[in-house]
Amino acid sequence: MRSKLRASSRALVAAAITGAALSITVAAGAPPASAHVHVDAANPAPGSTTVLTFRVPGESDGGALTTQFSVTLPDVASARTEVMPGWTARLDRDAGAGTVRSVTWTAGPSTGISGEQFALFRVSVTLPDQPSVTLPATQTYSDGKVVRWDQAPLPGGGEPEYPAPVLALTGTAEDGHDHPAPSAAPSTAPPAAPDVSVTATPQESASTGDDTARWLAGGALVLAAVAVVASILRRKSA
């Protein structure tokens, strides 16, 4: 019986080791998931003003840094970039239409995104009144390589090599109008009774204080007399 149990245990251990080895082999042979430029926003609603956040990873295999990132905007009515240390931002405006067509961030000296890093670029915009918005982007590296994230989804719903960031405008527009508060209903409670409490005058307060002091002094004398009488009686009884 013991030999059978030992054999079963050895078989289970061998199977576990084989499964772990296969898992490691599959993981090592699987291609790494590609990192893309993504855009996100909190409660993006058509026609609303929101902050777009672009997540930009460094993807250079040769150690080059991402030193510039630009996004094409759908001619938004207004745009405002967030302060980003080490980077400068420039808005490309259409002087005739008064809209913003694109925004470009440029890294300062000794600044950039390496292959082991990512950065978040934020811009506040007024979204167009439509179900979704496509935001083509361009990523430039320090070695001169330029990657354009502007490809549409493949037929059948597949993802291309360099997909353009797309934001679905599924949020709910907030009501920015001020509504007056409802007027209070007339009170049906009877009017409060007038305050008839009487406040003592300074003279009356002083008089009351003197009377109290006299009564306390008299009480103290009575107690002292009682104590003296009790002491005399105890001595006589002894």
Results as ranks from 00 to 15, higher is better:
Asp40Tyr: 11
Ala220Met: 02
Leu135Trp: 05
Ala33Asn: 09
Val103Ser: 00
Ala95Pro: 05
Ala213Glu: 07
Ser114Val: 02
Val228Asp: 03
Leu216Tyr: 00
Ser231Gln: 10
Ser9Ala: 11
Ser48Gln: 05
Ser23His: 07
Val228Pro: 03
Pro191Gln: 09
Ser114Asp: 09
Ala224Glu: 05
Thr104Trp: 01
Arg80Trp: 10
Gln117Asp: 13
Leu73Asn: 00
Leu52Gly: 04
Pro202Thr: 06
Ala220Gly: 03
Val56Pro: 00
Pro131Asn: 06
Ala15Ile: 01
His36Val: 15
Val103Pro: 04
Asp40Leu: 13
Ala30Arg: 02
Val103Ala: 00
Phe118Asp: 10
Lys145Arg: 12
Thr88Phe: 04
Glu59Arg: 15
Thr25Glu: 08
Arg10Tyr: 01
Arg55Lys: 13
Ser142Arg: 06
Val125Asp: 00
Gly47Gln: 03
Thr134Tyr: 06
Arg148Met: 04
Leu91Glu: 01
Ala227Arg: 07
Arg214Lys: 11
Ala107Gln: 00
Ala97Lys: 13
Val147Arg: 05
Glu161Gly: 13
Glu161Arg: 14
Glu159Val: 15
Ala193Lys: 08
Gln139Trp: 05
Ala42Gly: 07
Thr126Val: 14
Leu221Ser: 11
Glu116Asp: 15
Gly63Pro: 06
Val37Gly: 01
Glu161Ile: 14
Thr67Ala: 10
Gly171Phe: 03
Pro190Trp: 06
Ser9Gly: 08
Val123His: 00
Gly171Gln: 00
Pro44Tyr: 04
Phe121Gly: 02
Pro160Lys: 06
Asp150Cys: 01
Ala21Glu: 01
Phe121Trp: 04
Leu216Ser: 08
Gly176Glu: 14
Ala89Cys: 06
Val103Leu: 02
Ala35Ser: 12
Trp215Ile: 14
